[in-house]
Simulated scan of single mutants.
Amino acid sequence: MDKVIATAAEAVADIHDGASLAVGGFGLVGVPQVLIEALFEQGATGLEVVSNNCGTSGVGLGILLAAHRIRRTTSSYVGANEEFARQYLAGELEVELIPQGTLAERMRAGGAGIPAFYTPAGVGTQVADGGLPLRYDGAGGIALASPPKETRVFDGITYVMERAIVTDYALVHAWKGDRHGNLIYRRSARNFNPPAATAGRITIAQVEHLVEPGELDPDAVHTPGIHVQRVVHVGKVDVGIEKRTVRA
């Protein structure tokens, strides 16, 4: 039951080329930075990433992106990363953009064993009708477009069917965790970490505070240890400021 791994490098050592990853975090908050840096050093490439955003320059998934180690990303917000935009428009990166709530529910559904669900988000748009550019050809044309999705009417309202997301691995950041893998997230760092943690077949959690089994109040646990296979104690993690605004 002791799921603690000594180092981040050991925890990510078996992530292979072409692996799919669900990654927690929102902006710079709750990002499993230590695990991402270890994965960068490990060298895996051709990765397929599921994350709300793809990091920023030099931070989070932006490290892997800048090194051209990400082949495909499923995200809902990517506007703050110039390198992301450059790779996407140049045809170097495949991108599936979906509504934020749909992304969270697709990961949650995957962890709950639900293969698909219906939502009104995206009905009447290219999200449902297809035609969103998944990959450009580098010359302004579309090399690969999203296919149309199944829609269905319930009680007079049209819904679009969305498939659940299950990934090979998940990387998450937690405030506290015990040796059994039970996790507690702190404040806004909770964001996408809980659904990401359940979506991975192998979930690796970096924790700031490692405690012994029984020390966590069961009512306070956000992710039960059954969803977590590896725990790495990383100590205090500082969150940077994504956009600093000061008076002229």
Rank of each mutant, 00 (worst) to 15 (best):
M1T: 05
D2I: 05
D2N: 15
T7K: 10
T7I: 09
A13I: 12
A13E: 15
A13T: 08
D14R: 09
H16P: 03
H16F: 10
D17G: 09
A19K: 04
L21R: 03
F26V: 09
G27P: 07
L28M: 14
P32Y: 09
P32E: 09
L35N: 05
L35T: 08
I36V: 13
E37R: 13
A38N: 08
A38L: 10
F40Q: 07
Q42M: 10
G46M: 13
L47R: 06
L47V: 08
V49K: 00
V50H: 06
C54A: 13
G55N: 10
G58C: 11
L64F: 06
L65E: 03
R72Q: 13
S75V: 04
S75L: 04
S76Q: 01
Y77H: 09
V78I: 08
A80P: 00
A80W: 00
A80Y: 03
E82K: 05
E82D: 12
F84T: 05
F84Q: 03
A85H: 14
R86A: 14
E92K: 11
V95S: 05
L97G: 01
I98D: 02
P99K: 04
P99V: 04
G101Q: 11
G101A: 07
T102F: 02
L103C: 08
E105H: 07
R106E: 09
M107Y: 08
A109R: 05
A112C: 10
P115Y: 12
A116D: 14
V123M: 05
T125K: 09
V127K: 02
G130F: 13
G131K: 04
L132H: 02
P133T: 12
R135V: 09
D137M: 11
G138C: 11
G141I: 06
L144P: 01
A145I: 13
A145R: 11
P148V: 11
K149S: 11
K149V: 07
E150S: 08
E150C: 06
F154S: 04
D155C: 08
I157K: 12
I157A: 14
T158A: 14
V160E: 00
E162Q: 12
A164G: 03
I165K: 02
I165Y: 01
T167S: 02
D168I: 04
L171S: 00
L171G: 00
V172A: 00
A174Y: 00
A174L: 04
H180R: 11
N182A: 06
N182W: 07
L183Q: 02
Y185Q: 02
Y185P: 00
R186G: 03
N191A: 15
F192L: 15
P194C: 14
A196D: 07
A199K: 01
R201S: 12
R201C: 09
I202M: 11
I202R: 10
T203L: 07
Q206S: 15
E208R: 09
E208K: 06
P213Q: 05
P213E: 06
G214L: 13
L216F: 06
V221M: 11
H222K: 05
H222G: 05
P224K: 10
H227M: 06
V231L: 08
V234Y: 03
G235V: 07
K236G: 01
V237L: 03
D238A: 13
V239F: 03
V239D: 06
E242Q: 15
E242M: 12
K243D: 07
V246N: 13
R247F: 11
A248N: 11
